[in-house]
Design a binder for these strands. Structure first.
Length: 130
RNA sequence: CGGGCAAGCCGUUCUAUCGCUUCAAUUAAUUUUGAAGAGGAAAGUCCGGGCAACACAGAGCAUCCUGCUUCCUAACGGGAAGGAUCCUGGUUAACAGGAGACGGAAAGUGCCACAGAAAAUAAACUACUGCUGAUUUCUGAUCGGCAGAAAAGGUGAAAACGUGAGGUAAGAGCUCACGGCUUUGAAUGGCGACAUUCAUCGCGGUAAACCCCAGGAGUUGAAAGACCAAAUAAACCCCGGUUACGGAGCUGCUCGUUCCUAAUACUUGUAUUACCGGGAAGGGUAGGUCGUUUGAGCGUAUCAGCAAUGAUACGCCUAGAUAAAUGAUAGAAGCCCCCGAUUUAUCGUGGGAACAGAACCCGGCUUACAGGCUUGCAUUUUUU
RNA sequence: GCAUGCGUAGUUCAAUGGAUAGAAUGUCAGAUUCCGGUUCUGAUGAUGGGGGUUCGAAUCCCUUCGCGUGCA
């Protein structure tokens, strides 16, 4: 389903602390992905944080626009690119950090996010095999 | 008709697919259905309140803010109406338009660079007037002394209120007339600021310099605060306290006022135990609910008022998120711009749509804003 | 959300309301050297923006922009 509810977002402060201190990360412009394999048996396969820095975008409108585009692209593509790769009790905690300096249209954001998710699933597979 | 200025208002709409948040009903189920879902500034946080916690016998000082009058308001540094001042236009009159933090310089202190004789208790200098000394080429000139006086010196942002007359050795608001600003008192008009008239006192600027006068301000802000859940330490160590020139509380300070332990031992002022206060070190939580959206609320009509605004009646319920909902894609309509075509108001292709996102809630102020509408003002051109 | 501080040459700092905003360093040019460095001489360059008070504003006041800091 193309849904994106509250439960799929990462709100726990402890988990976020653990994610940024011990998670692995890579950059695929204009995103920086930080992710970590979790093993607790929550209902959601993937939990995600989307953040846009105030340093690069002063106005709240601009930050909202970027976040809405990322969220929409993630909602439309997560099912086939990410969820089908996950088996068993493996769970992913994920942070999408926007590092671009300008606002891109939706088509560009969607294309980049697709390749990002593909790379993420590759890395996840390597870890699971190890 | 065109552009300009001022004030007020609007701030794209609809359809389809896939989603997000809240509420209501429903379901075995976050299952399904329905309803609602950013602004004029939500912004800056510059003012004022509500609300909450803490504090509070009382007085004074300090600190900060405000500053023509009356009214509006819950309140305001906001608004309305008016007054005086200044600027612009004008027949320099009436009047019209605009502007501003608009109490006091006659309580006191300070400051006023450069230039200039002098920048504030006026007067050193040049020049002026009277008396007088010396020299000499003797109705005069040169060099001085004493006294008077504040008119002349054209520098400056500003020169001791301005003009004229009298007066005098020379002069001076020294006196008088007219005029400007101003203090105090009286009369008249006005709720009042103030205006007019009469008398009287005075005459540099600066209070967004210190200051004086009048009025006001308890402190902290939803990370306030209340409840639930979870966790727990009443452990150990150090310092201080036992009746007073000490300590603590009461707003930063002062006055003033209120409060301030017991037992045991012996060497009778020390120790131990308990108690009170503070510190260090260490451990735990860092989730949820309420506060929180029905309110100084919005719309319409009538009445009162010059107006801001208020009163009455009827109707309406209109976001409530919390690592942050209100979105994405496609199409259509209308608007604007560029290009091309012609029939000069139509068609076609392409592009654009501002400033900006609620975070406890209101009232203002300030700032940002594509494009459009309405009203008023003055102006240009054309037609009659 | 609330409270609070700062803004001066490219950089680091000065300046009591008063003349052309000063010093060090940097940059550029010249001299010195066979060349470079050092040294010497000269030049360059600033009060975040707007408005007001004042004869006069970096300084005083208002407004705005930017950069920080703190909180349970």
């Amino acid at each position: 389903m193309y849904t994106f509810k509250k439960e799929e977002r990462l709100c726990s402060e402890k988990l976020i602390q653990g994610l940024f201190s011990s998670g692995s990360s890579f950059i695929l412009y204009p995103f920086r992905i930080t992710w970590m394999a979790a093993s607790d048996e929550s209902a959601q396969l993937v939990r995600v944080v989307i953040s846009v820095p105030k340093r690069n975008f002063k106005r709240a409108v601009d930050r909202n626009v970027i976040k809405r585009r990322i969220r929409e692209a993630y909602r439309l593509n997560k099912q086939e690119l990410l969820y089908q790769q996950i088996e068993g009790k493996n769970r992913i905690v994920l942070s999408i950090h926007y590092v671009g300096k300008e606002i891109f249209p939706f088509s560009f954001v969607e294309k980049k996010l697709k390749s990002t998710l593909l790379k993420l699933s590759d890395e996840f597979h390597e870890k699971v095999v190890d």
